[in-house]
Each structure stands twice: as C-alpha cells, then as structure tokens.
Design a protein around this nucleic acid. Structure first.
Length: 553
RNA sequence: GCGCCUAUAGCUUAAUUGGAUAGAGCAUUUGACUACGAAUCAAAAGGUUAGAGGUUCAAGUCCUCUUGGGCGCGCCA
C-alpha cells in the first residue's frame, strides 16, 4: 500500500518531467526495496531508463528528478538521494507509513483486496483432475494446494473464479478399472481365479468389491464401472475436503463429450467436424488428424482413429470449447509437469477454435519427489506401495501439509521427506508463522487486565512507533499488497509462504526489542494496535494459503 | 535421437521478473529466559549462482554452446 501510493505519486511527477523534456513513451520503472546496508525505504531506477533513451548521463537525469520530486510530492517523500550508479533512494514520510497501519486496522480482512468488479475477468481454474482410478496421491496434493490457493488469491483480487475438476471417465482405463473390481468380487465368491498383473492392484479395489459383495447382488447385475467410480470419487472428494479444497464444478468427460443429442450427434462429433470444415483437421489413413503443427506443435495429432473411436485429445478439445461457451474469458489449467508434452497441442486447439492464445494459461508444477529415510519412494497408482494424500494429511496435519506444498515455486521440484514431515516440530516453517499469532494473542489477553488502553484508532498516536523495528514491521505489513501483486503476475501462491516467513522474522525481532505492555499508556496503546495489524495480516496471508491460525499452540 | 523443464551455501531453497554487498531455514560454533510464550532473539561460519562465451550502465535472471539431472516423445489417457 505504501509502495502503491509512492508509485502513483512518482508516476505523476515523472509524466510532468518527461512532458517538459518532450519525451514520449512508457518507462516501466520499478521501486525496489534497497539492500540492507542502505537506509532508504525505496530505490527507483527511472533515471537509468530515461538516460538510456535520451543517451545522456543518468546522474543529470537523476538530479532533475530529485529536484522535481522534492518540490512536487514532499507530502509523500521526505528525502531523495542519488546513489552513485543512478538509483534514486527515497525516504517516505512517516505519515504515509502510519496511514497504512490505520488502513489495515479499518479494512481488516479486506485489506489489499479488490471489489468483485472485474466482470471481464471470469476465470475458470481447472486443477487436480486426476483420473478416478484410485485415491489422490501426494503429487495431486501439490496441485490441489497450489490451485486452491491461487483461486483464493485471485478471488481476493476481484476475479470471478470457478474451480473445476475434470473427470476422465470415458477411456479404456475405466474398462480395466471395472474389470479389476469384478475379479476381486469373483475372488470373494470362492471362485479360484488369479488377479492379473496389469489390473489395478490397490487395496481400495478390494474394499469396493467387499462393499458390493456384502450388498449381496448377483455378479451379473452389478455395474462395476459405475460402482467403482462412485466409490473412488467419494474418496477423492473426502480427501480434498479434509485438505480444505472444495470444487465449484465437476465435469464428467462421458457426459460432456459423448452424450448424443436428438440427432445422434455428440459434442466431440461436432467439434471435430467443425475443425475439419475449417481446414484445421484432415483425413489420412482413415484417421482424422489435427493440424496442430501449424500452431507450434512438433507434429500433427490424431483426433479420431481409423477404427472410428475418438482420442482423448478430441474430447479435450470439446471440453475447452465448452469452457469458452460457458462465458469464461480466462482459462487456467494447472498440470503436473509430466504433461508438458500436451501443452503445445491444446494451445493449438484454442487458437484453431478462434480464441486468443493468451486466453489459456497453463501452469505446470514439478512433481513431488517423495523420500522416506533418504530412500526415494516410487509413486504409482498401479503399484502396491504408494503414498496417498490422505496418509500425509493424517500424519502431518492439513495446515503443515498445505504450507509445505506451497513453499516452493511450482516450477521447482519439491522434496517431501515423509519422516521430516511427520515430525511435529519447529523444523516446520508453518509453526514459525503461526507462533507470531500465538504471541500476539498472548499479549492481547494480557492487555485485557488493563483499563487505560486507548482503543479508538483515531486517537492513537502512531508517531510513537518510531523505532527501526517498528518502522520495518509496518513496512513489511504493507508489503502484503506487493505480494498480492506479484502472485497475480506470476500466477503462483508461493510468494506468500516466503512473505509470511519474512513477516514473522520482522515481528519476532520487534518483539525482542520493543515491549508492548508498559507503563506508558499511549505507547502501549499504539503498540497494541500494531500487533493487532500483524494479526490481521498473518491471518489474511494464511487464509490465502488455506492454512488455519490457532490462537494458542 | 528430438522436444520441454532444470542446475544457487553441506542439505532444502528464496530473490519484488534485468537492479546496488544473492536472502532464509536445517545442520555446525558462540551468547541471551527473576516483565507480554526461548516454537524466540543476537552473532559467527558457510557462495566464482554447474562451466565457457555473449547482450548492457547493470545478469542468478536474457541469448549461444558444453556438461549433469528430471520429464515427455502411441491411431494410450
């Protein structure tokens, strides 16, 4: 918020300066937080950028800028200095800093948020979308955490977000799945039969068969595919719920793509014909091919096989068309990085359907590498040994698990050591952050014994918060808004874990140095307001990550 | 073989998207609890950002090459 205000003021000054010089064009200058050895609040790089354009010495530009800054916006900037290399170091007026604090206290859980006015930003965020062939594993958990947090952040910023889970229930994997349950069922009826290796081995299949068997239905009357998917889906939904992830919309491939209308035509028929007519698809060797190489794919892809059956890609094209038809203007797909080979072709499809390439963003997250006592654990839903999301959540808790998943850039691989995650100790950074809230609460509880506390925000003298630690803390609180901005820009929530850890660090330093409850009534009141703000921001930040905030630990 | 991603301290990693002396946590060493929670703080040590070139006022970040790692290359989903 401080940064935004300074930036706005500087923009107006800069526009005036450039206008006087007769220079046109955009200068995307930035305000940086300077390194520790420099005392200033912000550093601006505008002089270098302008100097480059005008081909003059940056120092001359900087001198001119400093002069006009001090003249025009002295209500915001206390001091401006030129650094040797052309940076302008800015010192923000105390009033601006304190105003932020007031804003946080007044706006509370809306601080930094935008009203839901961006109707044009109707976002469809599709994530997890794991095939219903087994419970979610740890890798899906990362996708769930990232997607859900991203949705929370975008909503906070005023986007109209729909979270969607797409179920591939139409492929021949489903046949194998149904067969797996059926054979398990048969084994229970004392029929001697081996369980083939290429079927799903997991225990959950046995459990489903058990349920069906206990219901006593005749084997020929049971719809194994339907029953198996039903149970697995329930498991998936339960696991997600325990992970604080809820979807707004569930889309079944079978229903979306393969249901016939009154003329006996499906959506896949429609979209393939459409592409053929548009000359984006052609027939060769009796198969229907998509000309995806025209739009950057490495080769063309089959939509309909020579045997007349559609590929997975075909129904996916229908699905993406459907997304746009439902009025979404921005599609975000969150995929595991092992699907990267699929990006080019689906992007090609979007363009062939007549939509802007930018309308679809595909975020890839690197898979979780799971280790146990240093030994890597192979994760496969087909294998006997795999670690489910539920197992990890049950062991380390929802909060630690989510925080852990959100700790890294999606594009960087995440090492998840089960033994380490199981440890319920302070090695986990989530405790470091939550501890801030616990400490704050403790002080608040203690302060309830006093009757001389000033609670009205307007009568508080914030100028008493004058130590370096206090000023740093307020500035860090204000950086909540910057974190929102960068998260939006990069479409990643991981900046918030980093931010909260940094905020916690600054808070603990403040805590050591500045005692809150003292004999000084006015100072105590001001500091109590400061920690109230800290609690608001910690809570807001953790909410965006889907992590809860205990008052006591 | 082709394509995408990636390489930062002993380990796990961040870096406001091209900015100043590359930040944290864990592990190691040292110090601080008779006032609000020591799940904390203060300090030390740890780096040629895989290597070599290039672009520019400025490169961990962009470009080229080399090397190591991950993943993907079906008329599977």
């Amino acid at each position: 918020m401080i940064k935004q205000q300074v930036l706005a003021s500087l923009n107006s000054v800069l526009a005036k300066y450039l206008n006087n010089k007769g220079v046109h064009g955009d200068f995307n200058f930035t305000l940086e937080v300077p390194p520790k050895n420099i005392d200033a609040d912000f550093a601006m790089n505008a002089a270098m950028l302008i100097a480059k354009k005008l081909k003059v010495n940056p120092k001359i530009i900087a001198e001119g800028l400093v002069e006009i800054i001090l003249k025009e916006i002295s209500d915001v900037i206390e001091k401006a200095e030129i650094a040797g290399n052309g940076f302008i170091n800015l010192y923000v007026k105390d009033e601006v800093i304190y105003k932020t604090l007031k804003k946080i206290l007044v706006e509370k859980n809306k601080y930094g948020s935008m009203p839901k006015k961006n109707k044009k930003k109707k976002v469809l965020l599709e994530f997890v979308s794991a095939n219903p062939t087994g419970p979610l594993h740890v890798g899906h958990g990362r996708g769930a955490a990232i997607g859900d947090s991203l949705a929370r952040i975008l909503k906070y910023l005023g986007y109209d977000v729909t979270k969607e889970y797409y179920l591939n229930d139409a492929g021949n994997q489903m046949f194998i799945l149904a067969e797996s349950t059926k054979i398990r069922y048969k084994q229970m009826t004392n029929v001697k039969i081996d369980f083939p290796e290429d079927l799903y081995q997991g225990r959950y299949i046995v459990d489903i068969a058990k349920r069906l068997f206990s219901e006593g239905k005749d084997i020929n009357e049971v719809d194994f595919k339907y029953e198996t998917i039903k149970d697995i889906l329930k498991t998936i939904k339960d696991d997600l719920k325990n992970f604080a992830v809820e979807f707004d919309s569930w889309i079944f491939e079978s229903k979306l793509a393969f249901v016939e209308d009154k003329n006996g035509r499906t959506k896949v028929d429609e979209v393939c014909e459409n592409l053929f007519v548009k000359n984006e698809a052609y027939i060769e060797g009796e198969a229907l091919w998509l000309s995806s190489s025209k739009f950057g794919d490495t080769k063309d892809r089959v939509l309909r096989r020579s045997n007349g059956k559609y590929t997975y890609l075909a129904s996916d094209v229908a699905y993406h068309k459907n997304k746009f038809e439902r009025g979404f203007t921005k599609l975000i797909n969150l995929w595991g990085a092992d699907h990267h080979g699929y990006v080019a072709r689906i992007k090609a499809c979007v363009q062939m359907l007549g939509f802007n390439d930018e309308a679809l963003s595909i975020i890839l997250y690197q898979l979780v590498s799971l280790t146990r006592n240093g030994q890597s654990v192979i994760m496969s839903t087909r294998n006997g040994e795999f670690i489910t999301l539920k197992e990890v959540v049950d062991e380390v808790g929802k909060d630690a698990c989510r925080f852990f998943f959100l700790l890294r850039d999606p594009n960087s691989s995440l090492e998840f050591d089960l033994e380490l995650a199981k440890k319920h100790s302070n090695e986990n950074p989530v405790f470091y952050v939550q501890y801030v809230n616990a400490r704050c609460n403790s002080i608040i509880r203690e302060s309830k014994n006093r009757e001389d506390i000033i609670s009205d925000v307007e009568t508080i003298n914030f100028a008493l918060l004058s130590t370096r630690e206090e000023r740093n803390l307020i500035k860090k609180l204000s950086a909540f808004c910057d974190t929102l901005a960068i998260s939006e820009k990069t479409m990643s929530p991981h900046h918030f874990t980093t931010y909260l850890i940094e905020l916690a660090d600054v808070y603990h330093k403040f805590y050591e140095k500045c005692r809150v409850l003292t004999d000084d009534r006015k100072l105590t009141s001001a500091r109590l307001k400061l920690i109230e703000s800290v609690m608001i921001i910690i809570k807001n930040g953790l909410n965006l990550l889907g992590v809860s905030v205990p008052d006591k630990m």
